[in-house]
């Protein structure tokens, strides 16, 4: 079953974000070679052009590099991958915080709910 996308957001951005999560979660290892664009199009069930656009974005950010004859690889640059981890954590935390603040929850309520959630996750 293919990944489902939010219909109101550009798909190439959602693929780029998904790949970043896969890299952080370790599904892709530093230095790994990516599948071909055609294969990735089948995996994500989108057109090869959409994949191309997502990969271009990741390449601009330094997360991917192209070897002319061998295809595309995840960077092995540790500093960059650490930065990516930090960026994604901040980005997700910011989005969640914005949403909860918009509901009118206080900082204390949000922090205590988060800490409860984390305790729950740890005990599993």
């Amino acid at each position: 079953m293919a990944l489902s996308f939010q219909p109101d957001k550009p798909i190439y951005l959602q693929i780029a974000a998904h790949m970043k999560r896969e890299i952080i979660a370790g599904s892709y290892q530093p230095g790994d070679r990516l599948p071909s664009i055609r294969d990735m199009a089948m995996i994500y069930e989108v057109t090869p052009n959409t994949i191309q656009r997502a990969l271009q974005l990741l390449e601009q950010e330094g997360i991917l590099r192209t070897e002319r004859t061998n295809g595309k690889f995840i960077t092995a640059d540790d500093a960059l991958l650490r930065r990516l981890r930090g960026d994604v954590l901040r980005e997700r935390a910011a989005a969640m915080t914005r949403e909860l603040l918009a509901y009118g929850f206080s900082s204390e309520e949000i922090l205590s709910a988060l800490s409860d959630e984390l305790k729950g996750a740890d005990s599993q």
Partner: peptide, 9 residues
Amino acid sequence: SDDLREQYG
């Protein structure tokens, strides 16, 4: 497609 989604939200 993605330009339209971006432009019109």
